Each structure stands twice: as C-alpha cells, then as structure tokens.
Amino acid sequence: LFFQPLNAFCTDRYPANIAQILLQKHCCVISLHTNFDKSHLNTYLTHKVLQWEHFVAQGLFMYGSIAPISLPNLAQYVCKSLQTDYMQYIQGDVESIKEHSISDVYIVCGSGCSLLSCIPPSPSTCFITSDVKHHDAMIAKSMGISLIDMGHYESEKYFVEIFDSILQNTGYNVIIADCENPFSLCLNKSRD
C-alpha cells in the first residue's frame, strides 16, 4: 500500500485513506507486487493476452523471438491485444530504420525500465514495459533497443482475474473489486 515513506498520515488522501479503513476494520494487507509479476502476471500477459505462448521466463523478464516485424506494427499488435486506445513507442538508434525489424522481445509488467541494462543491446530487440520516462527512452535509444510503453494499468489489470481464479481454486470466498484506471485520455482534435 505504501511505496514511499509517509511524512504525515492525512486520511483524506491516498494511501492513508485506505489505511484508515483497514485499521478501523482490523484488517491486514498482503502485498503481492513484484513477486506476483514474476510468478504469474508476466507469464499471463505474455502467453494469454499477447498470445506468445513460446516465450520463457528469464529472471524478471519474459523473453522470446517472434517473426520479424516493424516496430510500429508490433506496437499496434500490443495495443490491440491490450484493448487500449493508444501506445507509445521509441525506436532504438539504428543506421537504417527502414530495414529495421524487431525479432527479439523482452516483457515486464509494470515499471521495468530499471532492468534495461540487463537486456543485450541489439537493433532487433524491443523491450515492452510501462512507465517509460524520457531518460529511459534516451538510454534505450543509445543502446539500440526499441521500447513499447504499454501503460502501467494496462499491463497489470489482469491481476484481479488471475488472483480471483487462484482464490476460487483454493476454496476461498472473497470479494475482489477491480480498480479503475485513474487516467483519462485527451486527444488533440485540432490535429485532424
């Protein structure tokens, strides 16, 4: 629940507002985040959503090879598979972009750019993750690695579905409420 230390416990703001409810009800929090990404979510996203069932776990990554495809077409495929309205991508620096195609793909749900240095640099490599910042993009470009930012919520929204299935299979009756994506999309209509 808490990603950063709190300087004040203001119960009218997230995350203290949630913590206050939990404290009043004498509830505990079990946080399944990076460990669940590694054990379930990365695999589910890669095998079930993106339909790349031949990809294998490689540390925190899912990794595999695909038929060579242009980066814009790969981004479009990921966008459609995740059923989202848009997707940002960054072309790694290559000498001949027109002939460039992606064939090696690494995937990490959530914010994975801290793992960028673990990926072997290659112009045929694309790293699909979320929360890509400007400096992450510049580092990837300099390494010759392309990036697709699939969106943090979009990459992890399957947690509820997976966890519900796990609990149901073990006989627990629980209520799982999916959270909504807090972001809204604004399109520049003057560019039409």
Score class of each variant (00 low, 15 high):
Glu53Thr: 03
Asn73Leu: 14
Leu6Trp: 09
Asn17Lys: 11
Val78Asn: 09
Val105Arg: 11
Phe61His: 12
Ser81Phe: 01
Ala16Pro: 02
Gln4Lys: 15
Tyr158Asn: 09
Asn17Val: 07
Tyr44Val: 03
Ile21Met: 08
Ile18His: 06
Gln91Val: 08
Leu1Cys: 07
Asn17Leu: 13
Trp52Cys: 01
Val132Gln: 00
Met150Ala: 15
Ile107His: 02
Leu71Lys: 03
Val132Gly: 08
Ile145Ala: 14
Val78Gly: 07
Ser165Ile: 01
Gln88Tyr: 15
Gly171Thr: 09
Ile66Ser: 13
Ala137Gly: 14
Ala177Asn: 15
Cys109Ala: 05
Asp104Pro: 01
His33Tyr: 02
Gly171Trp: 03
Phe61Trp: 09
Ile30Asp: 06
Gly112His: 01
His100Leu: 12
Ser146His: 05
Ile18Ala: 05
His54Glu: 05
Ile107Met: 00
Gln168Val: 02
Val29Tyr: 01
Lys48Glu: 07
Thr170Gly: 00
Ala8Glu: 14
Asn173Cys: 02
Glu53Cys: 10
Gln76Met: 10
Ser101Val: 09
Ala57Trp: 00
Leu187Glu: 13
Glu154Val: 04
Asn73Pro: 06
Cys28Val: 04
Ser101Met: 04
Cys28Tyr: 07
Gln91Asn: 00
Asn42Trp: 07
Lys48Leu: 08
Asp178Val: 10
Thr84Ile: 15
Asn35Arg: 07
Ala75Gln: 02
Cys27Trp: 12
Ser184Lys: 14
Leu71Gly: 09
Ser114Pro: 05
Leu116Trp: 03
Pro123Gln: 07
Asp178Ile: 10
Thr170Lys: 08
Gln91Leu: 13
Asp104Gly: 01
Ser155Met: 11
Asp37Ala: 05
Ser184Asn: 13
Val105Gln: 02
Ser142Phe: 08
Leu1Gln: 03
Val174Arg: 10
Ala19Pro: 02
Tyr153Gly: 11
Asn42Arg: 03
Ser103Tyr: 11
Gln24Leu: 12
Ala140Val: 04
His135Gln: 11
Val94Phe: 14
Ile166Trp: 05
